[in-house]
């Protein structure tokens, strides 16, 4: 199993005390599987994604990612897991503004020590970025920036792609195109995909859906 998360709980401190965001959530994701995580705003989707991406730690529960228990790891080991096993796509793209398209795509692969220029070139071509490799993020449209972010996430050939509302900033047609590309590329690499989305229409295009409601699996 690529991801095996059990009984995850997470609360955040607020002015009125602790606010539970996740209460005993469990999920699994197999290699090559695509899973849509849906739910209303505040249901805990992004928090769950952050826990699975080793960006944050749960209050309780366990997460096994590619056979490694990640909940008790320190900063250095969690960073290594993110670098080597996970591809992350953010809603706000989070590209490096001072690097051009080519350098942004290759960036995580270089960090992980797995840079493959041919694969990066393939990704750029497949993502329709081949003729804009010298452009900087500020010179790209929102859809183009999101495609660069997807390329960056897939360049190190991660075991799992975690995407947080990757099409949230895009119009419907562009969102469809981007998702189609993601599904194709994930299928080619054999990675698992977990995508947080508000869109039921997009969620149905993935192999499985999991709906969260008030911090629990609905």
């Amino acid at each position: 199993m690529l991801i095996d998360a059990q009984d995850l709980t997470k609360s955040f401190a607020t002015g009125d005390g602790m606010l539970p965001v996740l209460s005993g959530v469990s999920l699994t994701l197999a290699a090559g599987e695509t899973l849509a995580l849906t739910g209303e705003s505040g249901s805990g989707k992004s928090t769950l994604l952050h826990l699975l991406a080793a960006l944050d730690a749960p209050d309780s529960g366990s997460i096994r990612l590619a056979e490694t228990e990640i909940t008790g790891l320190g900063d250095r080991d969690r960073a290594a897991i993110r670098r080597e096993k996970i591809g992350l796509v953010f809603q706000q793209f989070n590209l490096i503004p001072s690097l051009n398209t080519a350098a942004n795509i290759a960036f995580q692969a270089r960090l992980a020590g797995r840079h493959d220029p041919d694969w990066c070139a393939t990704l750029a071509r497949r993502l329709g970025l081949a003729d804009m490799l010298d452009r900087y993020p500020e010179q790209l449209s929102g859809g183009q920036q999101q495609r660069v972010a997807i390329g960056r996430a897939l360049a190190p050939r991660p075991a799992v792609l975690l995407a947080d509302e990757p099409t949230g900033n895009l119009d419907e047609a562009t969102a469809d195109d981007v998702l189609a590309l993601v599904l194709d590329l994930v299928a080619e690499t054999g990675a698992g995909l977990l995508m947080v989305t508000h869109s039921t229409r997009l969620a149905t295009r993935l192999s499985r859906q999991l709906r969260l409601s008030k911090g629990r699996v609905a």
Binding site: A53, L55, D75, R76, A79, A80, I81, R82, R83, E84, I86, L88, F90, N94, L95, I96, P97, S98, F107, Q108, L111, A112, R152
Partner: peptide, 16 residues
């Protein structure tokens, strides 16, 4: 700031 967050999210340890 954005770059620092991205670098860390992409796997660069804080200490590094």
């Amino acid at each position: 700031r954005g770059m620092f967050r991205s670098l860390r999210a992409l796997g660069l340890p804080l200490r590094t």
